[in-house]
């Protein structure tokens, strides 16, 4: 469970708040989609949840553990896939996964089994002993996904996970997210691609300019079946729909 309480964040000495008084609760067992246009503050929010950025105002807790007060305990519960796909480029995938296993204290009798299963799923077993820097974007992303699941995190957070993946991998990832949520964990991911969110999410939040605009189940957001999520999204984020219509 993730609990975000009145969180605000301003970068450096910028005048604009990147995240503005955001309050959100994500429950166990659900896949939560975090939607918003570019620059809406999705990544900023995610970085605060993971303890990368300090929180200016408000508080965030993971399964009741406050990320600012007790960062180490909270981070042990988290699995995080960043949007930049950057890791330790010069390690081989095999070395990297071993590193993560030690750092996240994965029981040593489970490391091999979990790693092999996930690696085969994403067809990474063939490049296992190559340095990560020789991987393509999608492959880097997949190795990050594998690494983030190695310790079976209570809360799994992914920043734009589906951009850049091939259809097979995207499909596998969606199945994994479903499975992880069904096992009673929390899955939280951001996206600006609407149809993906539409298909896999239990609940959705839409942010714009750092503030929450809508949060609800898909059905309730659409109100009636004729309106697509895309239309809702464009409407609430104030996009100018007229422009391209003539």
């Amino acid at each position: 469970m993730i609990n975000i309480q009145n969180v605000s964040k301003t970068y450096g000495n910028s005048a604009k708040k990147a995240v503005d008084n955001l309050t959100l609760t994500v429950n166990d067992g659900e896949i939560f989609g975090f939607l918003g246009p570019n620059g809406a503050g999705k990544s900023t929010t995610i970085k605060m949840i993971c303890g990368i950025l300090s929180i200016d105002e408000g508080a965030i807790s993971i399964d009741g553990i406050d990320i600012s007060q007790n960062p180490i305990q909270a981070k042990k519960l988290l699995g995080f896939v960043p949007d930049t796909h950057e890791t330790y480029e010069n390690l081989t995938a095999n070395e990297y996964l071993n590193f993560v296993a030690t750092i996240y204290e994965v029981p040593s009798n489970q490391v091999k089994q979990r790693a092999e299963k996930l690696l085969t799923l994403f067809e990474l077993d063939k490049v296992l002993n190559n340095p990560i820097k020789t991987f393509s974007h999608g492959m880097k992303q997949k190795i990050l996904v594998v690494a983030s699941l190695l310790h079976n995190p209570k809360v799994w957070i992914l920043d734009e996970p589906l951009t850049g993946l091939d259809p097979q991998s995207a499909y596998q990832l969606k199945l994994l997210m479903r499975k992880h949520a069904d096992e009673g964990n929390t899955v939280f991911f951001s996206s600006h691609v609407i149809d993906v969110v539409e298909k896999v999410c239990d609940r959705i939040a839409i942010v714009d300019n750092g503030s929450l605009v809508v949060v609800d189940t898909l059905d309730k957001i659409r109100q009636n079946k004729d309106v697509s999520l895309e239309q809702v999204f464009l409407k609430v984020t104030g996009a100018n729909l007229e422009e391209n219509n003539d």
Binding site: N98, S108, E116, N130
Partner: peptide, 28 residues
């Protein structure tokens, strides 16, 4: 990169975090 023959996941012995961090740093 060399054609990796070994496609199995090789588990390394887990040691303490301090050493793991230092070794990882050095390799990189």
């Amino acid at each position: 990169s060399k054609k990796a023959k070994d496609t199995r996941f090789l588990q390394e012995k887990q040691s303490n975090k301090l050493l793991t961090l230092a070794m990882c740093d050095l390799k990189r």
